[in-house]
Amino acid sequence: MDFDFRWLLIALPLAFGLGWLASKLDSRQWKREQRDAPRAYFKGLNLLLNEQQDKAIDAFIEAVQADPDTSELHFALGNLFRRRGEYERAVRVHEHLLSRGDLPKSERDRAQHALAQDFFKAGLFDRAEAAYAALKGTTFEQDAMLALLSLYERSREWRKAAEVAEGLEARGAGSFASRIANYSCELALEAQSRQDDDEARRWLDRARQRAPQSARAHVLLGQMLALKGQHEAAMSAYAELLKANPDAFNLAARGHAQSALAAGKVPQALALLEAQYRRHPSMALLSAIALLEPAPEAQRARLAEHLRVEPSLSAASQLLQHAQARLSDEEAPLVGAALQRAVRPLQRYRCAACGFESQHYFWQCPGCLSWESYPPRQVEEL
């Protein structure tokens, strides 16, 4: 049977027409999807700006479904999940990005950094450490090192923290001397808890060499020597602090006076404390002087003079205790209690970085985790 070529003349135009129609339909669908995806994206952005995170997430999910190849939408969605504390969903989004074979290296590094942040916020420090380590040699390396520094501080891995801080300093990221000195002090305290005073002394010496003006190493050394009964050596450690950081000597003034009493060096210590008080009057120095010269009349005279120089409720309260004999038995406790209640909020230390207040002096702020952010004076004297 011969093939009739007339059918070919009919089939070819028909096939061409069907193909053209299909392409037009596909083009319209593609254009509609491209139009819908930005619309959903901008809708999500608008909801996010209006702090409607739940609806913003729904809009971004809709945008991702319409355009699954757009990495920016995935990053926006993952960051939203992390901000809401939905770390598992954030991890899934960023792991999905990393699994894509068509992702450029810059976007892959960005996804790796976002994944590390997810693990860190979720408290999965082991996985966060590995994720940040994978960023070595990328544009995110310095950010990863800073995050690792915070991670090692939280997990109290002081040796690793010191290594990272040294690396950051070598990269020109700023001075980390104070932090490194505090890490050495933490390691000294760990050695001291194991009764290894020699190792503790080595760490404290290293801290003083690394940051001579850092008060903590001098204070800890003085306390350690005093516990061992080496009071003259403790006084020398406190005197070194006075030379290196006079403002911080308030933190060691009482310890210096106690060691002077134990070593029989009261006149020398009294002269040093009085000289420092004349330069920088404070209640901490006044209390230390009172330990060395406890005569009531001398204390009253010093408190009265302090009120003239530095008016404070703390000095007034102490002076009242010395003058209670002039009040009746009923009046004295009432006035004393009122003053104590009024002065208590002022007898605190306040973090200069975040404003966290505490009755105790902290070398690292419990609120913002900043190192040595507490001034060595109480709120009343700031």
Rank of each mutant, 00 (worst) to 15 (best):
L80H: 15
H256N: 12
V379L: 15
R348Y: 08
G336R: 04
S287A: 15
S71P: 14
P38K: 03
F3S: 07
R308K: 11
L285D: 04
A122W: 12
R100K: 14
L148D: 06
H96P: 02
Q29P: 06
L77H: 03
G19P: 11
L382F: 11
H322D: 01
T70N: 15
P376C: 13
A248D: 13
C368R: 10
V335S: 01
A181Q: 02
D2H: 12
A252C: 09
H231K: 00
Q142E: 08
A248R: 08
S314F: 11
L80V: 03
R154T: 11
Q117V: 15
A257D: 10
G167W: 04
E293A: 15
L346I: 07
A211H: 06
L73S: 05
L225K: 02
P246M: 12
R308Q: 14
Y238N: 01
A342M: 04
E88W: 09
L77R: 05
L18F: 15
G44R: 10
R92Y: 05
A90F: 02
D197E: 01
A165Y: 07
S27D: 15
Y132D: 02
N50R: 10
A207P: 09
S328E: 05
A353V: 14
D54K: 13
E305F: 03
A114N: 11
R194Y: 00
A262L: 01
V64K: 11
P333D: 08
Q192H: 09
E51A: 08
V93K: 06
E95Q: 15
Q52W: 03
A323T: 11
P38W: 03
F119P: 02
H113L: 10
L48R: 11
S373N: 02
R194H: 05
I180E: 02
R154A: 10
S282T: 11
Q378P: 07
S193C: 01
S27I: 00
E163I: 13
T138C: 00
R300Y: 01
F3Y: 06
V335N: 01
Q268M: 07
D126L: 09
E157V: 03
A234M: 09
A56E: 09
H280C: 05
A260D: 00
R159W: 08
D26T: 13
K265I: 03
A233W: 12
G78V: 07
A338Q: 07
R341T: 14
D143M: 12
Y41R: 12
L320Y: 08
P311Y: 07
D198V: 14
S155C: 05
E372R: 11
A269I: 03
P376H: 04
W371T: 02
S328N: 04
F42I: 08
L320Q: 11
R159F: 08
L286C: 14
F125Y: 14
H74C: 12
A284D: 13
Q359T: 09
L148F: 04
A131G: 13
E169C: 07
R35E: 07
